[in-house]
Design a protein around this nucleic acid. Sequence first.
DNA 1: CGGTATCCTATGGGATACTG
DNA 2: CAGTATCCCATAGGATACCG
Lengths: 113, 113
Amino acid sequence: MDKGETCPIVEAIREVGNENDLLVIRFLSDGSLGFNEMLRMAGTMSPKTLSNTLKRLQEKGIIVRNIVSTQPFRVVYSLTQKGMDLKIVLNDLKAWGSKWLMSSNPYSLTDNR
Amino acid sequence: MDKGETCPIVEAIREVGNENDLLVIRFLSDGSLGFNEMLRMAGTMSPKTLSNTLKRLQEKGIIVRNIVSTQPFRVVYSLTQKGMDLKIVLNDLKAWGSKWLMSSNPYSLTDNR
DNA sequence: CGGTATCCTATGGGATACTG
DNA sequence: CAGTATCCCATAGGATACCG
């Protein structure tokens, strides 16, 4: 491999290899969500951090912000095509996590390396 | 989806959704490497950070450290099966990165969303 | 609801020098 | 080569309160 600067994997890691980014992408992978909905899902993530993450992802063109109604005020975030194209990654992470991380799974005892 | 705590995707993100971890996994995805080799690949990563990352990944059982020879002293790191099972994720990231991130690609102009 | 503002702390991480 | 030690700083990020 080359030194990394022009490697698409490394580029991709630098673009979405961030825990908060990945979490938000995962939240939106099943459909659009509002700010507080995600905040609740995010466990310990603070509104400031979520806000920053959402801005970053918008700038990267991975999510879009949509004002659904003004009375009452309602906003939803959703994945763009660029974001949806990451679903396959999430899917593989799901398989990997199921195999290696869940304590109650058929692999963890027998296939532990 | 549930609130995240027991979701395998979220678990996986918390396990390997870290830029440095992902970078090292990518470096090792083509074969074993020594400390300084990775340091050179990592661009700006400092020895301290690389060292911490390697320790984290060993504790997670994603990589192993192997002393190849003592005279001269030579160590290599390699992926475990758990680590190798992440190659599919890297592969997807490669496809995604090629499609959406590389400036000179057939998609970026025409398929920009 | 959908955020922003402020405060404060931890810690991640670079640079560099050094050791076995 | 394979790291460890030290220093030093930026900034990520939690908690909380508040605003339109």
